[in-house]
């Protein structure tokens, strides 16, 4: 007989696989490109975030204790400072990019632009956090 935590982990793993497969099939059917290749790429790409989401919704509630003092930690401050800095950088990049694209009258693909902005925002925040952490040593 499986205990409650193991059951939650199994359900999370199954949901992860089902969600990834569903996204893969949907993308493969809608894209117009080779079905198997597209479905595989999308399913593989969705695996990690779907797994994280399933863990967050099903496993974390019983394995992670809420920290009442989380906001008192210096790490919390670093996250706030890094996020605010990344947001400012993102605004500057988007503003300058918009100006350049408008002047040159260039049409960019939305997928590429959004991907670049997501990578920039996440990378910027991560680098800023690490810099703050190192400066505190």
């Amino acid at each position: 007989m499986l205990d409650s935590l193991t059951r939650r982990r199994l359900v999370a793993a199954m949901l992860t696989l089902v969600a990834s497969a569903a996204v893969g099939v949907l993308a493969g059917a809608m894209s117009g490109r080779p079905f198997v290749l597209t479905a595989t790429v999308f399913a593989a790409s969705t695996l990690a975030p779907a797994g994280a989401l399933a863990w967050l919704l099903l496993v974390a509630p019983v394995t992670v204790r809420p920290d009442r003092n989380a906001g008192d930690n210096v790490e919390h401050r670093w996250v706030q400072v890094a996020s605010a800095g990344a947001f400012t950088d993102l605004l500057v990049v988007m503003g300058l990019g918009l100006a350049v694209v408008s002047v040159l009258d260039v049409a960019l693909e939305a997928q590429v632009v959004l991907l670049a902005l997501v990578v920039l925002a996440m990378g910027d925040a991560a680098v800023r956090y690490v810099a703050l952490e190192r400066s505190a040593r």
């Binding site: 003092n69 930690n73 210096v74």
Partner: peptide
Amino acid sequence: LGVSRQTVISI
């Protein structure tokens, strides 16, 4: 205090 060690170091 219920905080991380790094918090104490930084303070």
